[in-house]
Simulated scan of single mutants.
Amino acid sequence: MLQFEATVEDVLAGSTHTPAARSHLRRLVLDRRIHCATTAFLVAVGIRLLGSPALELTGSVVPSALGAAAVAVLVGLLSGPWARRHVEAGLRRAATKALAESGQPRRIWLDATGLGAYSPGGGTSHLDWAVIGGIEETPDHLLVRTGPVESLAIPWRTGPLDVAAFAAELRSRLSTVVGQVAVLPTIAPQDSLQFVLTEEQWVDALVWMDRRDGTLARLVRRRRRSSAAYFALPLGALLLLILTTASTTSWSGRSPSVLLGVLAGSVLIVGLAQLLIPATAEFAQRSSRRGYLALDPRPLEPTRVWASAGGVDLQRPGSWDHLEWSWITALGENRDMVILRTRTSLLAVPKAAGPIAAERFSTVAREQLAAVSGARVYA
């Protein structure tokens, strides 16, 4: 058995090492660069309006738009380092939070059937040999591939000789199970629930929980603030032009009422965009969750769960996780599902898998979570 105190660097190494994780990070960086380019375009438009009181609304619109677009492209190309630092800072904050919640120390061991891991705040996980995707050594860590997105990072500072012996034994075990197919564990209580979720069921459950715990509302508020910030400078510049030319009968041969019409139309467009933000936010959330499933389809695998005083047991082909109640942050129940949100994921249990067993599962969860500080229950 290996035991070590994990650091933020260990968590980051495990969550950013796999090809799927690196692909996801590249998409996040691209999103930030697009954000920078869009902001630059709107700022350039606002500055152009402020700096050109003689702007002809017909003759100079296209050149001005092309100039703003050129600025946006340049900023998008140059914003790569900033975007990477921004994404890395977000990952570091998430890793710091996860580390504080999972507790110390961490223990990892090998047994006859696979690899086990334990953290005081999260519980116990066990992976069969068939679902371990291999190992890799870096100067700082031994990385054990435990899923499509994540790896288990074991720092060499734990003890170079001990980690090397662990790696040698793991390689030896993995060499004997090539081609082995992972199956559901055979040990489970009689009142366990077994099911297979569809993509729509899992996404619906997650969005339902996002509505109940305020995640979707926070996303809507962020999008509204971002939308308002995007258009503040261009609209403010246009309004300033109207105010500064209100005392004249014409503005480069045009009535100020033309500008008022442009401003009114712009405000109308921004207002409609604000009204549509709740719907677009939910659409984006659903798209994001489907994107997660494309990276990690394990929530759609055959699943078996049950609840007890000690926590929730979750079995999937080749894996068995025991989640302590302190690791669960929210419980929700609607007509079709019992939904648990953990600190890192979501578990949706369809009532159709067994109405009586689902009711018992929900009852036990409610009773146990009543004693967990900060856990919430939604109807």
Rank of each mutant, 00 (worst) to 15 (best):
Q274D: 10
L263S: 08
P256N: 06
L263I: 05
P256S: 08
L276A: 15
A273Q: 13
L238I: 04
G271M: 07
R289Q: 13
Y292A: 13
S247Q: 13
L243R: 06
A264P: 00
L263E: 13
L238G: 05
T249Q: 10
I242R: 08
L260R: 10
A237H: 05
V258K: 00
A273V: 03
S287W: 12
I242S: 03
R298E: 10
P256E: 03
L240H: 04
Q285Y: 07
I269V: 15
L295T: 07
S257R: 09
P302F: 01
V270I: 14
L293A: 04
T248W: 12
Q285V: 02
R290E: 07
A246M: 10
A281D: 14
G253D: 07
R254L: 09
G253S: 06
T244K: 06
R254N: 10
S266G: 15
I242K: 06
G291I: 08
L275H: 09
V262G: 03
L243K: 02
T249Y: 09
S252C: 06
L259H: 08
T303H: 10
L300I: 12
R254V: 13
P302M: 04
G261K: 02
T248I: 00
R289E: 14
T244V: 12
Q274V: 01
L240Q: 01
I269S: 06
R304G: 08
T280H: 10
L263C: 05
P278C: 04
S287D: 09
A279G: 09
T303E: 13
G291F: 11
P302I: 04
R304M: 10
P256T: 03
A294M: 07
D296V: 04
L300S: 09
Q285N: 00
R290L: 06
R286N: 00
V262E: 03
L241K: 02
A273I: 02
T249V: 11
S250P: 02
S255P: 07
A246C: 03
P302C: 04
L235S: 04
L272P: 01
G265P: 01
L260E: 11
W251C: 05
S255N: 14
L239C: 05
L238P: 00
G291L: 09
T248H: 14
L295K: 11
Q274G: 09
P299C: 08
L275M: 14
S257M: 10
L238Q: 01
G265M: 12
L238S: 04
L276P: 00
T280N: 11
S288D: 14
S252W: 12
L243F: 01
L275K: 13
G265L: 15
A284K: 13
L268S: 14
T280D: 02
